[in-house]
Design a protein around this nucleic acid. Structure first.
Length: 860
RNA sequence: GCGGGCGUGGCGGAAUUGGUAGACGCGCUUGACUCAAAAUCAAGUUUCCUCUGGAAGUGGGAGUUCGAGUCUCCCCGCCCGCACCA
């Protein structure tokens, strides 16, 4: 199986490096900044420079490259850039573990990965390469921060934050998964810190509404974003509060404001509950040690996984009571409850146990009333057991709402309270403002200075970029910027007194929220060159992993709007088309002790069973899982490219599996791709010498061959447009089969057309081989600069078609009829088929259904 | 719990959107070439049967239709996302 250097094999090593050099010296992939051609911007999510490229990168960048090369051939002015998402914690971890500076580690990795990506033969304009850790990039990010700060898009506040005790940093809500830090996996703690925030919530409605305009985004991603934004419509109103034994409420707390999406259930309310973080809870705790202990317990348990799993509703009766707004003389107890979130709504609710599962669990535990006020129709014996009723029905026990359905009751009560001035309709969002402060070194410095007299002072634009100091060490935990004497301590730009530089850096998601805009003018001395940005944006096709469905894509959508507001861009939505690719998986191998074993160390032993290559110990095969270092089921792309060539690796990435599904890496699969690369090379090179010269017209008597050729053009074109790369691969296989079957003595002009076509169709996927074949076919030009073949519709039409013959819906045979043959002709032929005669068995024909060129169905 | 997706040969997957199920590839079988192997080429490969033919068949069950992998309903199984959002 393994490739060798036999003369009958395609010598990819020589060819691939040769064509890469040719493309580079011809500037083939450098787009024109001013062009009459329509523009097309293809972008793959830029990589984090972690060390070496992995198979996920190979798949991602192969797909993007196919699109870029295809669009270029279709006559577009194509922008296809590459850069590095280069700030982030792994560089600091490396600094701590390997005693290497984060910058040195990062730039070394970039060099390695750039070399590896270049081996793939990607049609990238490398002149536009950017790295987010370079001051030329992040200085402009700082400028935009200042502009956005001035525009009111950024603010600073004390906030409870998610603190990762292992990484010593704050995490955004999006970076907390099941109560744990997304990188460290450590249980997240709550801390009160002064933080910078982007006002993303100001755009919540717009970000939600615009999702419907993103027609070329996967429905799944749009849904995930919609759920994340989490819009709800409800009513906000206040309860009057009484103290214990009809005494007055604590000073300043005579009202409790609540938010509800079910105001229709107010007559079923049996308690009021406030968050442990609610101001009233804090006030009451001053004189109630038991409550203080309860609040402390809630804070400790707040985000821990255990609580979420058991989800037990717990509360503390404050002794206070509130007045029911509509039932004279009726009061409700007030609890502090662990399931009330301070961040949502007002941090206080009324509980209607009959129609909310959480309220029901709580009411059962504390013996509170459960009164159904929404009753499903046709259920006279309706009662609430362990399950709250949230379905449709008519209101009952609800005075002026009785008999209304749920929606009408919501409207009625909202109208009534708004008219009385006691409540108002309110829309709430799950989305929170985006906290961007990180207590890390390897990130973009936040360009502000803290002055004892002047407060927070933005760094003057003329002092940008605020460059990270190089002379730092990582021998103690925490942020080395905090310990840096000269960098941290500066003079106030306003008053000149001694002041302190902000030592927090940006969340790295800020860096990746605008890089697509920087690629339009990577050398501009402003964040963007508006003419270039207006020409190239939006990205026409963005490609990346589904793991960024929420974070990166939502932040970028917000940031683009913020750039528009500050004049750095002119559009709302950065990515017109989005494609999310599947993961690369591989079988897993373990010893009997359960230790993971690399595929390279697994061999077939005597008798065919798998054993460890070195120790001979038996190996158990596990299921195919995402390639990961921890499971050791990783295949290094560079090994594959060195052994089989880039085109083989690219071809395999596109074969078989639909691009949005997971792809199983197999040795047999890559070997199969290698075989086809050679087959195509042999097919073209073996016939190239005896062909008539380029430009020879195809012969008229080669209709079947020409139909196969033009059907392939039409099919591959359609498949590439629709991201059906696996189907395009199958069609190229079919064309190769047709060309082989036609033989070397097929009419020369038609054969040349076929060989040139298969070369052109394969070029976006196997670009080096295609150049080699194009040259072998006698061309002096680059196929990468040649136009896409056009299918001639006239050649696709067949004179006769084979149609299916059914008797009562069962297949009985086929007949060959002229295209668009009339029913009488088709009927006559169908009824003459012996199998049809047999199936009719003498019965009279009742009816015949005839779909021209498809099927004829005889009913008896 | 809520939301979304998926289920087709030994395997990855096709199926003009209701019209010949299994394209194409992998694997396997047989043959040619070879001292032999690899590579290559040729033929075959859904299952079952009473095998020049026939029957069944797209997770299971019902339904609509001349006709269902495709549409509807009910089950079963797997995967992903969100998860105390009032």
């Amino acid at each position: 199986m393994a490739p060798d250097d036999a003369p009958s094999r395609y010598a990819f090593k020589d060819a691939e490096s040769r064509w890469q050099t040719e493309w580079e010296s011809a500037g083939t992939f450098r787009p024109d900044d001013i062009s009459d051609l329509p523009k097309y911007y293809v972008l793959e999510m830029f990589p984090y420079p972690s060390g070496r490229i992995h198979m996920g990168h190979v798949r991602n960048y192969t797909m993007g490259d196919v699109v870029a090369r295809y669009k270029r051939a279709r006559g577009y002015n194509v922008l296809h850039p590459m850069g590095w998402d280069a700030f982030g914690m792994p560089a600091e971890n490396a600094a701590m573990e390997k005693k290497i500076h984060p910058a040195a580690w990062t730039y070394e990795n970039i060099d390695t990965m750039r070399r590896q990506l270049k081996m793939m033969g990607l049609s990238i304009d490398w002149d536009r390469e950017i790295a987010t850790c370079h001051p030329d990039y992040y200085g402009h990010e700082q400028k935009m921060f200042l502009d956005m700060l001035a525009a009111g898009l950024i603010y600073r506040r004390e906030a409870w934050v998610n603190w990762d005790p292992v990484d010593h940093t704050v995490l955004a809500n999006e970076q907390v998964i099941d109560g744990r830090g997304w990188r460290s996996g450590a249980p997240v703690e709550k801390r009160l810190l002064s933080q910078w925030f982007f006002r993303i919530t100001e755009y919540a409605q717009e970000l939600l509404d615009a999702l419907s305009t993103l027609e070329r985004w996967p429905e799944k991603v749009r849904l995930m974003q919609a759920n994340w934004i989490g819009r709800s419509e409800g009513l906000r109103f206040a309860f009057d509060v009484f103290g214990k034994e009809a005494a007055a409420a604590p000073a300043g707390f005579d009202k409790i404001e609540v938010y509800t999406t079910r105001p229709d259930t107010i007559f079923g309310a049996s308690f009021c509950a406030i968050s442990p973080e609610h101001a009233l809870a804090g006030k009451l705790a001053e004189n109630d040690p038991a409550l203080a202990a309860f609040i402390e317990e809630c804070g400790r348990m707040g985000t821990s996984e255990a609580v979420i799993e058991q989800a037990e509703k717990k509360g503390h009766d404050t002794g206070l009571r509130v007045k029911h707004p509509f039932i004279e003389g009726h009061t409700l107890p007030v609890y502090v409850a662990n399931f009330i979130l301070m961040e949502y709504g007002t941090g206080a609710i009324f509980g209607c146990p009959a129609h909310d599962q959480r309220d029901l669990d709580f009411a059962r535990k504390y013996g509170l009333d459960v009164l159904p006020v929404v009753v499903p129709e046709d259920e006279p014996d309706f009662a609430i057991g362990d399950t709250a009723y949230t379905g449709p029905g008519k209101l009952a026990h609800s005075e002026f709402l009785d008999g209304l359905d749920v929606d009408a009751a919501k409207t009625a009560i909202a109208d009534r309270m708004e008219a009385a001035g006691t409540g108002r309709r309110e829309v709430n969002f799950r989305l929170r403002d985006w906290g961007i402060s990180r207590q890390r070194y390897w990130g973009c410095p936040i360009p502000v200075i803290h002055c004892g007299d002047c407060g927070v002072v933005p760094v003057p634009a003329s002092d940008l970029p605020v460059v990270l100091p190089d002379d730092v060490t990582f021998d103690t935990p925490g942020n080395p910027l905090e310990r840096h004497p000269t960098w941290k301590n500066v003079d106030c730009p306003t008053c000149g007194k001694a002041a302190r530089r902000e030592t927090d850096t940006f969340d790295t998601f800020v860096d990746s929220s605008w890089y697509f805009a920087r690629f339009c003018s990577p050398g501009a001395d402003a964040p963007t060159d508006r003419a270039a940005a207006d020409y190239w944006l939006p990205v026409d096709q963005y490609i990346g992993g589904i793991e960024h469905a929420i974070l990166h894509l939502l932040y970028s959508r917000f940031f683009t709007r913020a750039m528009k507001r500050t004049g750095h861009a002119g559009l709302d939505e950065p990515f017109a088309g989005l494609f999310t690719q599947g993961m690369i998986c591989h079988e897993t191998y373990r010893t009997e002790k359960g230790e993971w074993v690399e595929p390279a160390n697994v061999v077939e032993g005597d008798g065919g069973a798998l054993v460890h290559a070195e120790t001979g110990a038996p190996i158990k095969t596990g299921r195919s899982e995402k390639m990961s270092k921890s499971k050791k089921n990783v295949i290094d792309p560079e090994d594959i490219i060195t052994t089989y060539g880039a085109d083989t690796a690219r071809w395999f990435m596109l074969s078989d599996s639909p691009p949005d599904r997971d792809l199983d890496w197999t040795e047999a699969g890559i070997a199969g791709a290698w075989r086809f690369v050679n087959r195509l090379w042999r097919l073209v090179t073996s016939r190239a010498g005896s062909l008539p010269p380029a430009g020879t017209a195809p012969e008229a008597d080669a209709a079947d061959l020409r139909r196969a050729v033009h059907a392939a053009i039409a099919g591959v074109t359609e498949d590439l447009e629709a991201f059906h790369f696996n189907r395009a691969v199958a069609r190229i296989h079919e064309l190769a089969n047709a060309l082989s079957d036609a033989g070397a003595d097929a009419p020369g002009g038609a054969l040349r057309e076929g060989l040139e076509t298969i070369t052109a169709l394969a070029a976006p996927m196997m670009p080096h081989l295609a150049e080699e074949l194009w040259k072998a076919l006698g061309h002096e030009t680059l196929i990468a600069e040649s136009p896409w073949p056009e299918a001639d519709p006239a050649l696709l039409i067949q004179d006769s078609v084979e149609i299916a013959v059914q008797v009562r819906g069962k297949m009985r045979g086929t007949i060959e009829v002229a295209r668009d043959a009339d029913q009488a002709t088709a009927e006559e032929m169908a009824l003459a088929l012996p199998t049809v005669v047999a199936a009719l068995d003498g019965n009279a024909v009742k009816r015949i259904i005839y779909v021209p060129n498809r099927i004829i169905n005889v009913i008896h």
